[in-house]
Every structure is written in structure tokens, then in C-alpha cells.
Write a protein that binds this DNA or RNA. Structure first.
Lengths: 228, 228
DNA sequence: TGTACATCAGTGAACGCGCGTTCACTGATGTAC
DNA sequence: TGTACATCAGTGAACGCGCGTTCACTGATGTAC
């Protein structure tokens, strides 16, 4: 099973192919040991060193692959829409869906302990992903749908979506929502609406404002229903 | 340094006292090794087994302590307010502040990998904490400030706050907000407002609704300012 | 065309490490007679 | 009051394990002469 000269990169890919399922099955980065990966590929442990200088680099390479996958998904989801708000929403849904479908990878990318920091390549991948979201928000701002600083709005929205995902995949011992999709949609939509409101509302005394809001909202709801 | 009969529980407390700073300094649960804990207390490793059946139980006991601390903080913060909405907000702020002040512990409680599940005692502590938040939301519903199912609202709000905290403590490679406090306040407040809106708005065509919303919101903002 | 040699991917054995856990023990204290 | 004994907290040495990493090596391939 020895690769010929020039065929080196093949094993590198095989190693990465083996690492991700290993990660998923065991549910954590700690399962990606050089021994386990090598055994899965059908090769001895030290061979890995021909392709990765150390374990950290191997894990980092796995992360880069996952980032690519996430970026592609969001891109593809957004591409189906002309309406910038729908495009943004599609991006959000793709993001959340990705997190729920790949909980272990999501944790690896976005919930990694501070102890094991990200490589510079990973930071670049993450920032590229974030820039695209900001651009999508900016499209909405330009279209007059959202108001305020695109970067700040993006961060708020992202924190909300991230909250849903990380809550659902970490499975903390709270009761779970019954309908996942509607829970996420409601929460993130609420964040979007709330952000739109926030940028237009002055500081206010909560109780008084709440009473006023409540009175106005019913009227607003009526108008919206009629307009449809 | 041998404890007399009857003084057993003393070492147990000392062990827990040593475990938490160890956790903090190293930035992760993996640092809480029996050896490290014992050394810190000034005792040999096997002594720990007099007080905890195994390592998992020790970690679990540390978690229970942290849950208590979190619960007390939220309780204390809420107790200062008569207005149920302000009380809820104070709870939220206390929660977020706790997470930012104790990132490693927060991660241990709420972002633990599925691989190492929570003990039944921990699940109980978490649920007690959650019940209190639901009760605080219910107070707001009763007062007419929020509308809808208290449990669902609590979960949405919690997901949003959790999103802010876990984003900020995991330090994923995104740009950070410049003003932490205002970022969190804005995001969570937006969630609250959005949830209030959501429960009153019908399904809608986003673009049209956004236009209508934008028109109405300026008027609403004016009214709120005048009322103050 | 044939031979010596360089290249390069993967091998096999071993290293030192820190870990959780087990075991028979020690020695101080309290208690029964 | 004195002695034998049970209790109980902590000890010291050792176990087996899996890990990342190192090292000299093997053996197939391509290439220079």
C-alpha cells in the first residue's frame, strides 16, 4: 500500500477523510488521535507526520474543511433569492441547519476552549465567512429593510442564531422546545424585528413603553394583515 | 496533617476549594486531575477517593457549586426590583455577567460536550434555575408586559443571552463588539421586543411588511418620546 | 540497454509522560471492658 | 484507671493504559551515466 513518489498528497486527503467521521462518532476533538486516524486509513501512526507536522495541524486542517463546507452551504442557500431579506434569512437558516446537522464540527469551530486557539488560516476562514454575512446585512440596509450599522446588526443576529444552535447542540439540562424549526425561526425572526425596532426607539421606561407598544402592536398587526 | 475521625468532610471541602481555581487557571475541565487537586490541597492522590468515588463525581460536585453561585446571583439581582420586567432584566444581566466573569465555569455547565453528560444532581440544579426564569417571565406575562407562553418566551430569551455569552467567552475569530455591555443589552432587549412583536404579528411578506414597519416605527418612536 | 544511486513514502520499535485507579499499609483517635 | 481493639483518614508504591513524538530503517520508483 505504499504510494509512489508524487502520490504523496493522496494520503493527506485520506487522513482528512478519516478524521472527520472519527470526530463525529466519538463526539469530540480528543478522539482525533494520530493512532486512531492512522488505523482508520490503514497505515502506521508515524506516516501521518509525512503530511502534518503535528497533531494540532491535523485538527486545524479538519477545521478548514468544515469552514469551507459551512461557507458553501450559506452561499448556495442565499443564491436562490433575489429579495435581500429572504437571502439573509436563507443564510441564517443554512447556518443553523449546518450547526444542528454537524454538532461536533460546530463545537469544534465555534465553541473551542480558549486553551487551544485557532490557527491563522482558521481565523481567516472565519472572518471570510463573517464578511459575507455583513455584506448580506448591508444589502438589506441598502434596500431599506434594516437600519443601522451592518456590522453591529450582523453580530447581534449571529449571536442569536449562535445561541439557538449552541443551546440545542450542547443539550444543557433545560426542557427542549417541541418544534425545533419554529423555535429557531421565531427566535431569530424576533431578533431581526427587535433590532429593527431598537434602532428606531429612544431609551424608554419599560413599563410605560410596554403598555403603549401593546396598544400599538395590535393596530400594526391589523394593518399588516389587511395589506396582505 | 491527618484529620481526626469525624473531621472527614473538611478535606472534601478543601478539595472542592482547590478544584475551582485549578479549573480557572488552566481554562478547562481537563486540568482537574486527581493528582493536581490533591497536590494543591497538600495531600496524596488516593486520599481523594475517600471523598469522591471517581473523577467524574468530583467534577460534578464542582458543577453543583457553580450552579448554586449562579442561582444566588440571579436571585439577588432580581430581589432589588418591584417592577417584574426590571426584575427579569436584572436576572438576565446577572446571568450574562456571571458568564463573562466565569467563562470556564460557564463553559463547563452549559457548553459541555455531549460525551461527558451531566449527573442527575446537576440536571436538577439546572432545571431549578430554569424554573425561576420561567416564573420571572410569567410575572411579566401576568403584568401584561409580555404575551404568550412563559416557558417558550423564557427559552427564546435564554437562547439569546446564551448566544451573547457563549460568543464572547468562546472568542471565535469574529470581530468583537466595541462596547460589551451595550452590545448585550441591545441584543437581548431586541429579542424581548421582537418576541413581543412576534406574538402579535401574523405571517407576512417580509419586504412589504418591512416598509410598513419602517413607516410605523418612526411614529411609534415619536409617541414614546412624547410620553416620557 | 544495463547498472548504480538518489529520492521519497511508509514502517516498526521504542521513548517518556501523565493519567485514573488499586492495594495493602500506617498511625492517630475513640471506645468497650 | 488501664489495656486491647475497632474505626477511620490519609499514605506510598505500583498497575496498566493511551497518548504524541522520535528514530533508524525498508523497499519501491525514477534518473544519471
Amino acid at each position: 500500500m505504499r504510494a509512489n513518489p508524487g502520490e504523496g498528497p493522496r494520503l493527506r486527503e485520506q487522513i482528512l477523510d478519516a478524521a472527520e467521521p472519527l470526530l463525529i462518532e466519538a463526539g469530540g476533538e480528543q478522539a482525533v488521535t494520530l493512532r486512531a486516524v492512522a488505523q482508520r486509513v490503514g497505515v502506521t501512526t508515524p506516516s501521518v507526520y509525512r503530511h502534518f507536522p503535528d497533531r494540532a495541524s491535523l485538527v486545524s486542517a479538519v477545521c478548514l474543511r468544515v469552514w469551507s463546507g459551512l461557507g458553501e452551504r450559506m452561499q448556495a442557500a442565499a443564491g436562490e433569492h433575489d429579495d435581500p431579506f429572504q437571502a439573509l434569512r436563507a443564510r441564517g437558516r443554512a447556518y443553523v441547519r449546518f450547526g444542528l446537522d454537524h454538532p461536533v464540527q460546530y463545537r469544534l469551530l465555534l465553541l473551542r476552549p480558549v486553551v487551544s486557539p485557532h490557527s491563522t488560516a482558521e481565523v481567516e476562514a472565519a472572518q471570510a465567512c463573517h464578511r459575507e454575512v455583513v455584506a448580506a446585512v448591508q444589502d438589506c440596509v441598502d434596500a431599506g429593510i434594516l437600519h443601522g450599522d451592518a456590522s453591529t446588526i450582523a453580530l447581534s443576529l449571529w449571536a442569536t442564531a449562535h445561541g439557538c444552535v449552541s443551546m440545542l447542540i450542547a443539550r444543557p439540562p433545560f426542557p427542549e422546545p417541541q418544534d425545533l424549526d419554529s423555535f429557531i425561526d421565531t427566535t431569530v425572526r424576533a431578533a431581526g424585528l427587535g433590532i429593527a425596532l431598537n434602532s428606531r426607539l429612544p431609551a424608554y421606561t419599560p413599563l410605560a413603553a410596554a403598555a403603549l407598544l401593546a396598544a400599538r402592536l395590535d393596530q400594526l398587526a391589523d394593518d399588516l394583515t389587511r395589506q396582505k
